[in-house]
Design a protein around this nucleic acid. Structure first.
Length: 651
RNA sequence: GCUGCUGUAGCUCAGUGGUAGAGCACCUCCUUGGUAAGGAGGAGGCCAUGGGUUCAAGCCCCAUCAGCAGCUCCA
């Protein structure tokens, strides 16, 4: 941009991103020197550093990165000046073509007409680049190349695969060191690391990629959360339901999930008899697939009539006897919930009907995308479907968001974004009348406003069946994850021909609200693990209280404490086995147990406990009854603190 | 799915072609210790899986599976 020309070209503090971009040039020049024939892609500054994409004949290794770093240092020693040269479009292409920089030639073509084309040059190396850059690459900065990974030219998987080298740079070695240390700390907060250390979950090769086994410790966290959420839901008038993990293909043909999203579903389960019959007929896989995905003319006719347009084309229609029935592992809970709603007649008086279920769904995510708890193939949504009258949409949306607000506030999560996805006003692909859309969109906006956090509108991002509100959080590695979503749906009720009887004794079409405010228990707990770094608030902590005797003869008193704590419903880890107190303290600390109660002669005599809180070496002796009261208050109030006695201000 | 890297004891990791190692955890014995690792001993591995090269493979090659970093995708 023109920023390059506006920025004062004097020695002094450039923005860090400018330095990083310049260091990426430095890296590219080192690569050009070390690997003749290298072709260059893009090399921008990014949030915590920079990268550059190269096309090289051989894959780069860690050792290569060190070699490149050395060459960079050598070039930087000469304090090269970075000079900007403006050229014409033809000249730029000629220069790049001469250097056999095919990607860069393509990049020139992507520069809009009328924009100035510039090269930046240092030493005998130059690069097509819009800048800005630091004026001189002297020694007053520190850098490190971090890792190499693959990427595609222009982010398109059909184009050549390039090697992307990531690095970072700072104005001083101290800042770089601090950044690297921060990265180490981040790693320790990673839910995969914490999850293993605290034995919260397990992913087993024998079970399958992306399928989470909740171990006892993690199950405690999950069920505490579910209990908390469920209590709130019943307060808000939801009804708990349970549905099975599979459903007939017809169900998903009606909902529209099959076959249109079949590439992200586990394959259909075909009835054994049908399969046997097909194989005697010599049916191929391709034919089987067609026969599974097709519908009868009657089915298509009914659905198209209800939708008022052709949602199932003639190419999907086969004669009845050709159709093959099967089951699908459910990719969503809504069809099952819809069938519950449809199973009995409804009056306008009993609307809205709110059906909630912690429903487990299965999706065939790409293998390279799966990891930890945040991207999995089987997950349990905190799902609910609200069947509402149109005049109730706004109020129900508010109800959904108040739950989100309550849970996030309870967990101390304030760092989340809200995105309100609206329809693209120019498009006609949407279901439902435009007046209804206007109302629904305004209701979404109004609901988002009540949250008191940053939110943005995303025109054109709505689903074709309705607008939605999404909640997005970042993990410790800075990756954004969509947690929950609240969606208005005009389409489902049409496809399933849902109705209720209005005051006018006529049938009316309800509107559906899909909402899973925390997305999935897997992802949500993954984010929570990182949010707390494994130091869960008392009510969520798998182990809440460790009881540690000072000597073996203090065991009877500790047993008594254990019994009372357990009777009060706490999760107690009585460490009564022989062994040293110090070692037990260390173990409890490593387990991130919020409280250690340490008891010896004095405590037994006075019915007190020496309370040691997680992450502190200080101890506080208190009456056991007082501790019990404190623990109850922390648990029942779902408090985030551990009830530390406020420090008395110095007088 | 794509590119690259990785896979050794429950965990964290050493081991560059010649019969498998450490620390922690675990078990046994000793130790009675007032707030973050007492001592000694022991057990524990088909070196991810399947092929190949070699007199000889944890190590080299190929494939598969899984993990990691990105890319692409995420109704």
């Amino acid at each position: 941009m023109s920023q390059a020309k506006d920025a004062p070209q004097v020695a002094g503090p450039f923005p860090l991103s400018t330095l990083r971009h310049s260091v990426s040039h430095l890296m590219a020049s080192a690569v050009a020197k070390l690997y003749p024939g290298a072709k260059f892609g893009f090399g921008p500054a990014i949030e915590h550093g920079f990268y550059y994409d190269f096309d090289l004949p051989e894959p780069l290794t860690e050792a290569d990165l060190r070699k490149i770093e050395k060459e960079m240092a050598r070039i930087a020693k000469r304090s090269p000046k970075l000079e900007c040269v403006a050229v014409t479009r033809d000249e730029a292409k000629a220069r790049l073509a001469a250097a056999n920089q095919t990607y860069k030639v393509e990049a020139v073509d992507r520069i809009p007409e009328g924009e100035t084309i510039t090269f930046y040059r240092h030493g005998d190396w130059e690069d097509l680049c819009e800048g800005p850059h630091v004026d001189r690459l002297d020694r007053n900065f520190a850098f490190k190349l971090q890792h190499v990974s693959g990427s595609y030219w222009l982010g398109d998987e059909k184009r050549p695969a390039l090697q992307r080298v990531y690095g970072t740079a700072f104005w001083s070695q101290a800042e770089l060191d601090a950044h690297l240390k921060w990265l180490e700390e981040i790693k320790e907060r990673d839910h995969r690391v914490v999850g293993k250390h605290l034995r919260l979950f397990h992913i087993d090769e024998m079970v399958g990629q992306g399928l989470i086994l909740w171990t006892p410790n993690g199950s405690i966290i999950r069920s505490e959360l579910q209990t908390f959420i469920s209590a709130e839901l019943s307060r808000q008038g939801y009804h708990q339901v349970f549905t099975p993990h599979i459903g007939k293909l017809d169900l998903y043909k009606t909902s529209g999930h099959f076959p249109y999203y079949k590439e992200s579903q586990y394959p259909a389960i075909v009835e054994a008899e049908a399969l046997a019959k097909l194989s005697t007929e010599g049916c191929t896989c391709a034919e089987l697939s067609v026969r599974l995905e097709s519908v009868s003319a009657h089915f298509a006719g009914e659905l198209n009539a209800r939708a008022g347009r052709e949602v199932i084309g003639p190419e999907k229609v086969l004669p009845d006897e050709k159709l093959v029935e099967g089951y699908l592992l459910k990719p969503m809970n809504c069809p099952h919930h819809i069938r519950i709603f449809a199973s009995s007649p409804h009056s306008y008086r009993d609307m809205p009907v709110r059906l909630a279920e912690f429903g487990t769904v299965y999706r065939w995510e790409q293998s390279g995308e799966i990891g930890g708890l945040t991207r999995v193939r089987g997950f349990t949504q905190d799902d609910a479907h609200l069947f509402v009258r149109e005049d109730q949409v706004a109020a129900e949306l508010l109800g959904c968001l108040s739950l989100v607000k309550l849970v996030f506030a309870t967990l101390g999560m304030h760092d989340y974004r809200v995105r309100v996805s609206l329809r693209d006003p120019d498009s006609s692909k949407y279901v439902g009348s435009s007046e209804n859309w206007d109302k629904a969109e305004e209701a979404c906006r109004a609901a988002a406003r009540t949250l008191g956090v940053a939110w943005e509108e995303a025109p054109g991002e709505a689903a074709f069946y309705g607008p939605k509100i999404d909640f997005i959080v970042r993990d410790v590695l800075g990756r954004s994850w969509q947690l929950g979503t609240v969606q208005v749906d005009y389409n489902g009720p049409i496809r399933f021909d849902l109705s209720y009887t209005g005051a006018d004794n006529q049938k009316h079409r309800p509107v559906m609200i899909h909402r899973a405010p925390f997305g999935s228990m897997e992802r949500f707990v993954g984010v929570l693990i990182e949010h707390f770094g494994g130091r869960f608030p008392f009510w969520l902590s798998p182990s809440q209280i460790a009881v540690i005797p000072i000597r073996e003869e203090h065991t009877p008193y500790c047993t008594e404490l254990e019994a009372q704590l357990k009777a009060a419903g706490f999760r107690v880890d009585a460490m009564l086995e022989p062994g040293h107190m110090n070692n037990k303290i260390k173990q409890a600390q490593n387990q991130r147990t919020p409280f250690m109660l340490i008891a010896g002669e004095r405590e037994a005599a006075e019915k007190t406990v020496a309370v040691r809180r997680r992450d502190t070496r200080e101890q506080e002796v208190m009456k056991f009854d007082d501790f019990l009261a404190l623990a109850r208050a922390l648990r029942d109030g779902k408090r985030l603190d551990l009830g530390e006695t406020p420090k008395v201000a110095a007088t």
